[in-house]
Simulated scan of single mutants.
Amino acid sequence: MLAAIAISQSATDPLSGLALRDDVPEPAPKPGWCRVRVVASSLNMHDLWTLRGVGHPPERLPIVLGCDAAGYDEDGNEVIVHPVLGDPDAGRGDETLDPNRALLSEQHDGAFAEYVTVPTRNLVPKPAWLSFDEAACLPVAWTTAYRMLFTQARITAGDRVLVQGAGGGVASAAIKLAVAAGAVVYATSRSADKRAEALNWGARAAVPTGERLPEKVDVVIETVGEATWSHSLKSLRPGGTVVIAGATSGTNPPADLGRVFYLQQRILGSTGCTRAELVAMLRLLEATGVRPVIDRALPLTDIHKGFQLMIDGGLTGKVVIHPPAPQQ
């Protein structure tokens, strides 16, 4: 089968380690696992971090990349793959807290292929009202945003929410989900086009990165890191909450501990989601009509192009990847 594989890592030239191979054996499921024919997957920053050697030890290479998948199970059912491979019992009912959890493509071959195998419990029925392309955008980026907003920050209607870095997969999801929940949303971006998109998604205002907001916010959704951290804390009301689930610009921002303790600000980490949260988010999407933002869809053979667009920062929303359909 055709698959996109990380064969090496480079901090400066990550795509040099990405190989397309058409002779990869089709995976066979272990007991308790299921094989899924992938109809659609999507790109995530996690894939680039793997290729850059961040958080992924080289001894796990080669490995098929791809954290997101939607397709058909072995019985022909339409499914979405929950990407966190973990034991809820080991995490006190939350598989994201299992010390041995792994995201698809970290310890097990991922979804940039014609087939992928996962534990059967990781399969979620795909609703008929959701296309395969839309479904493939949800497992990592959208559920990350959902957990940040509703599980960690516990936003309610009327809350003021700042989303840093509008345009990325998690940020675009956070804007649309927060608006759907009745929050007043502010967004930042260096790009005028992405600020305009944020307004189209329902943000009350979208300002250049670092610019002062019209009011203090209750919650900041932070995935950028060093470049926006100071602005995030300064934008937060006393007693407000920053939820951080990534740091694309760096992981060592100035702490500003005086502000944090004097204003009693809360800083919460968030990683991935549970299967139950994915199911709950699907119910929210059905009720509100909110759908993922898709920048474009590409065949698996063009995956290098998709990653280059991500590196260049020229995307608004997700890039969907289509593996070839099986030959009859």
Rank of each mutant, 00 (worst) to 15 (best):
P323R: 00
T117Y: 04
L257R: 07
L315P: 09
I303W: 04
R275P: 14
R160V: 14
L130Y: 10
D218R: 11
P119F: 02
P253E: 09
A297H: 01
E215V: 14
W33T: 13
I294W: 02
G210W: 03
L199T: 09
V79D: 13
P326G: 05
F132C: 09
D75M: 08
V220A: 12
E222Q: 14
D75A: 13
V116H: 10
L43D: 10
M45T: 09
L268T: 12
L97M: 06
L309V: 02
A198H: 04
L282R: 10
V79S: 07
A4N: 07
S10H: 01
V24C: 05
V319W: 04
I63P: 05
Y186A: 15
V38I: 07
R35D: 12
R291I: 09
P292I: 00
I221P: 14
G306R: 00
V184Y: 14
E26L: 02
A173P: 12
C137Y: 02
R275T: 12
A6C: 08
L177A: 15
H82M: 13
D256I: 07
H82D: 13
L123R: 04
A196Q: 05
D94Y: 00
G306C: 05
A40C: 10
D75I: 00
A90Y: 01
D256N: 14
T209M: 09
K126T: 10
M45R: 05
A6T: 00
S230W: 04
G93S: 06
R21I: 06
V220I: 11
A28L: 13
L103Q: 02
A173Q: 08
V207H: 06
P127W: 04
P139D: 10
S232N: 11
K318S: 12
P214M: 05
A19K: 09
P253K: 05
D133A: 11
Y72M: 05
E95C: 10
A196M: 03
V24L: 06
S235E: 14
W142K: 09
E277Q: 11
W33G: 13
A180F: 13
L85N: 09
A135G: 14
R60W: 02
A102S: 15
H231N: 13
D159C: 14
L162G: 15
F112E: 09
V170A: 09
D133S: 09
A187N: 06
A198Y: 07
L15C: 07
V220P: 14
A11W: 05
P31N: 06
T228S: 15
A19Y: 07
A181E: 14
A180D: 11
Y146F: 15
E95F: 02
L65W: 03
I321C: 08
